[in-house]
Write a protein that binds this DNA or RNA. Structure first.
Lengths: 328, 328
DNA sequence: CTGAAAGCGCTTACAG
DNA sequence: CTGAAAGCGCTTACAG
């Protein structure tokens, strides 16, 4: 691997001068500039980013830590964040931790160790302590609200989302609504469920709950169980779209008409939810806004830290084909 | 940010000794070891990975460059590769380049610049020259077969896959099969189409082709066009599963029964293809094998380079619900 | 077993 | 405008 000294030697200048023309950080006589440029050309020289970032203490990198790369919601978020980072001259370093708290913590440490300029964390669990130790880089936490020395919190109003969903299901005439709740160790799982629970409490509706992980197979299995346990169900509030899609699959297989016999609503509004047939009614999360704000927050922190700010984004109901209003 | 000198000072030893206990790279007296461990504990010291990798010339990182993070096929590949890398003590650095050749090239250079230990590239185009310059790190190219100074090539037998698909469609009684072909600048798009073309040539079938990008919206639009252009179509070979899913959506919307009136087959066998209803018949790619082999190849290269090896994996047809054999 | 020294490849004051 | 020098934070021969 060629280095800056080699290039300097070839061009007959000092390494400092080479550095200056590469970075445009000071004026260099046109003649030497040309010689340097030629030497770079001739050698295919690419400056060693590691050495550079050791000196600069910045890697021009933002880390993103997500619980699962197999969930399109996270993937869509990552795609948007990636775009934004690139636009601003940063790289996005995606860490997939597979809902493993140790890996999550390791990822955070690694980001710190590679001089990342900031990290965006979607915690694998709301109980974790990943944020408890003071980190040397700005940390924006998404989809969680635990307390810790974090730069900023950012999440959607899931509680409100669940209420919206329930209201809608009731408007559609459902009387026996069961909630397939996600992992209760998770902020999204918890607050969506609490939204459902409170709605039931307020309206004197009996709670009907089934527990489920955020993945296809769990969704398939739990739907079977749900039908067993609540044979008269006429409305289902799924903890997220991928589970809702699994749910639909089982209903379809059993020839249960949707939305005529059972109405179904998901959460997230991933791209697939409007691609399947029938299209899924769901609670839409403003992923793009979420990503923009998150990126703003991590990068702004670089200058002045406004610790612990809380930012809550609103959520909307998107009615599509798996629910139908009574009067319609 | 605390550094190794601080820790050494606290423990009353030299930085070299601290380094030795951290890395277990030489024996240290038990007493000093304890003092060092305590100092590390007390300061929450995390060694600076940048400095370390500057010295070692290895970042314990493998880069993965994909054209699009929004295509589940790439995402599933990334998930598997991530698992494998972690298992072997490497990080996976995912670069999403959005089918942009400049970004692809930049990503490769960046990986080189950060002392990555190797790169796995899924090229955005078969025409690109990303591999033309000698790289200083091992490069395994997936889903492409261009010629260049690459460590290894690895792809599935798409040509064969397309033939399998055609055979199946014909067995199912289709007479007017149209091929929604993917980008012809792409190896997968090209070889799948060529498989279709050659099958048609051999069996004296008229080619019916429509061009499409690898994404949902394109799939939606091109299916409309296809129906316009080939009103008597009774079989569709889609360039990949996400396009096939879009195609199904349009057929469903128009009340065209699948597979009774039109039979449909995809390519890739992403997780979603068996989750939608009806389940999609498709050509299965052995993603896990692909990932394992790719990881083996990049890492093995570290020791001795076997330049330009070509590895072709077989592909299988998975019949599900969007096709039906005549006799069935 | 242990420390002082040199070096990984850059960049930036500091002089001139 | 330009070079010599010091330093970013580690690690590993080299002595002892």
């Amino acid at each position: 691997m060629i280095n800056i000294r080699e290039v300097a030697r070839l061009a007959g200048v000092s390494p400092a001068t080479v550095s200056r023309v590469i970075n445009g950080t000071a004026s260099v006589s046109e003649e030497k500039r040309q010689r340097v440029l030629q030497a770079i050309e001739a050698t295919d020289f690419v400056p060693n980013e590691v050495a550079r970032s050791l000196f600069k203490r910045s890697a021009k990198t933002i880390g993103l830590i997500i619980p699962s790369i197999r969930n399109p919601y996270f993937t869509e978020l990552a795609a948007k964040l990636d775009e934004l980072a690139t636009q601003r001259g940063y790289r996005l370093f995606l860490h997939n931790v597979g809902y493993d708290l140790d890996q999550e913590w390791a990822a955070l440490q690694q980001l710190e160790a590679i001089n990342a300029d900031g990290a965006i964390l979607v915690p694998s669990s709301n109980d974790d302590r990943a944020d408890q130790r003071e980190l040397s880089i700005p940390l924006v936490v998404l989809d969680s609200d635990f307390n810790g020395p974090v730069s900023a919190y950012l999440y959607c109003d899931y509680y409100q989302g669940a209420q919206l969903a329930m209201e809608h299901l009731v408007d559609c005439g459902c009387r026996e609504i069961v909630c397939i709740r996600g992992p209760q160790s998770t902020f999204s799982g918890r607050s969506r469920y609490v939204g459902y629970r409170d709605y039931c409490l307020e309206h004197h509706i009996r709670q009907r709950v089934v527990d489920c992980d955020y993945d296809f197979n769990a969704g398939l299995a739990m739907t079977e169980e749900l039908l067993e346990r609540y044979p008269k169900v006429d409305g289902i509030l799924a903890c997220n779209d991928i589970v809702a899609i699994s749910t639909y699959k089982i209903l379809h297989k059993r020839n249960i008409p949707v939305p005529d016999q059972i109405q179904l609503i998901g959460f997230d509004d991933i791209a697939f939810s409007s691609l399947i047939s029938p299209e899924l009614t769901t609670i839409h999360q403003p992923i793009d806004d979420l990503a923009s704000l998150a990126m703003d927050l991590v990068l702004r922190q670089e200058e002045r830290a406004v610790k612990g700010g809380r930012h809550i984004l609103p959520v909307t109901l998107v009615q599509r084909e798996t629910t139908k209003r009574k009067d319609a």
